[in-house]
Nucleic acid binder design. Structure first.
Length: 426
RNA sequence: GGAGAAGUACCCAAGUGGCUCAAGGGGCUCCCCUGCUAAGGGAGUAGUAUGGGAAACUGUAGCAAGGGUUCAAAUCCCUUCUUCUCCGCCA
């Protein structure tokens, strides 16, 4: 949610910033709603002040035995006028709220405008592995080694679902254990949130109302989504709403969390044959990091999250790069996003394994998460940041493809062996 | 799922229509007092949102949330949410 004051004071600047994301807005109508809303409010306030003061006098007049019928009649008229005006004000302020709630976050000033093609690679780690044999793709590798059962996954739940089996399940769980250990040692608090969330969480995270149709809704609660539950598409949706409506002690910032959850996504219409396998599924495992940061330090928090996500991939010994996303490629809620992209040999491209973002105060405004700033003495919105750390469904394909051997086996990264109990998958 | 009770500020809590624009405690902050501590005395304490004002200050909203009744609602009515107790069901 953007700050209405910012739009009032610099509408052109905000519009220009949103344009970098490809969002073209005209604020003239909004500003006229806002102006008349404020004017009416001040008028109705005066009317209410009068009602309050007269109401205070009525018992005294009654005690003094003076007639009050005339005053009652007048006050009834005043009350009706107040009610009418209040109704208009509510309608207008709803319009204003809905307009602003539908706007994406403004990107940070240093981002390039435009879409994917303007993403900048800012760091490359490792090199593309060279094979002196014909490398296999992860679908074949996982299938042949019995790690993933794609066909039976489809049997259970349809296209876009798979089953981890045997060493595949062990490897998956080892990755999660490894990530958990990394985050714990960095002092992050481990959270296991509900997987089904209420509408307010989707709104607070900035995913609703726009992306309501991209998540799974539970049907048994009827059609009213405001009352129902949806399956979380990322743990961020839960983590970022934990302190909604609260005022956080400034001394506790930054607060650092990570959560493990499966992520449930419809991914409607995004399936492509090249993404066969586990690149894009309706359910995948992810560990998500979230920080609640003091606005003055949110950039440091951002860098920390990028470094953490990178370090994990690095420890796995996989080749990847870090891209700074152009404004239009950042998701709606985010002011800044860096992607950790991992090399998938069979596809010949880099695929996102982690997306680290700073929402600034966009999410905190939507769900009212504040802290008391000791410098200003005022309650201000915190900054929320999130980053995957990591999504396994993209790691496994990269891992099996990058670490495959001529004999069709896969070398298990050193850091996972204490969890897997084996060095090679044959 | 059924029945009942409750929700007031940082905490406890009074308050069944108007001198309550929420009493009284506790806590917290400041001051006084005693050599220190304990005890005691005094003052302050509604967080928030929003309007006006250069500021001091001030208007409005707000007693779980949203509606309604009324000249007037913490108080009466309706809906929803949450918590607790009992019953039922259940991994």
């Amino acid at each position: 949610m953007l700050d209405i004051n910012k739009i009032r004071n610099n509408p052109n600047e905000v519009a220009a910033s949103l344009a970098k994301k490809g969002c073209i807005v005209d604020f003239t109508e909004l500003l006229s709603w806002d102006a008349s809303c404020r004017q009416m409010k001040s008028e109705v306030d005066k009317m209410k002040a009068e009602r309050n003061s007269v109401s205070g006098q009525i018992p005294k007049l009654k005690k003094a035995g003076q007639p009050v019928d005339e005053i009652f009649a007048k006050m009834r008229e005043l009350g009706d006028a107040i009610a009418e005006k209040d109704k208009e004000i509510n309608e207008l302020s709803d319009k204003v709220f809905n307009f602003i709630a539908g706007l994406p976050n403004t990107p940070d000033d240093d981002l390039l405008s435009g879409e994917k093609e303007n993403n900048q690679v800012i760091r490359v780690v490792g090199e593309k592995p060279q094979f002196d044999f014909e490398p296999k793709n992860h679908y074949d590798l996982c299938t042949k080694l019995g790690l993933i059962d794609y066909e039976r996954g489809v049997k259970l739940a349809g296209n876009g679902y798979w089953i981890y089996r045997n060493k595949g399940a062990i490897l998956e769980w080892a990755l999660l254990n490894f990530f958990v250990e990394e985050h714990l040692s960095d002092g992050y608090e481990f959270i296991l949130p509900p997987h089904m969330l209420g509408y307010n969480c989707g709104f607070g995270a900035g995913q609703f109302p726009k992306f309501q149709d991209e998540v799974y809704w539970l049907a048994d609660e009827g059609c009213d989504r405001k009352k129902g539950h949806f399956m979380l598409p990322t743990a961020e949706t839960a983590l970022v709403n934990m302190y909604a409506g609260e005022i956080i002690d400034e001394a506790k910032l930054p607060m650092k969390f990570f959560a493990y959850t499966p992520c449930y996504r419809k991914e409607a219409g995004t399936y492509r044959s090249e993404e066969r396998g586990m690149i894009r599924g309706h359910q995948f495992n992810k560990i998500e990091m979230v920080q609640y940061a003091h606005p003055e330090h949110s950039m440091e928090a951002f860098e920390e999250l990028v470094a953490k996500a990178s370090r994990i991939v690095e420890k796995l010994g996989l080749h990847f790069r870090v891209s700074k996303l152009a404004a239009g490629d950042c998701s709606a809620s985010m002011a800044r996003t860096y992607d950790i992209e991992i090399w998938i040999p069979s596809m010949g491209i880099y695929k996102e394994v982690s997306s680290v973002s700073n929402a600034n105060d966009y999410q905190a405004r939507r769900n009212n998460t504040k802290f008391r700033n000791s410098k200003t003495g005022k309650n201000e919105f915190v900054h929320t940041l999130n980053g995957s750390g990591l999504a396994t469904s993209r790691v496994i394909p990269a891992l099996v493809e990058q670490l495959q051997n001529a004999d069709g086996s896969i070398t298990v990264p050193e850091c996972l062996r204490k969890w897997t109990g084996f060095d090679v998958i044959k």
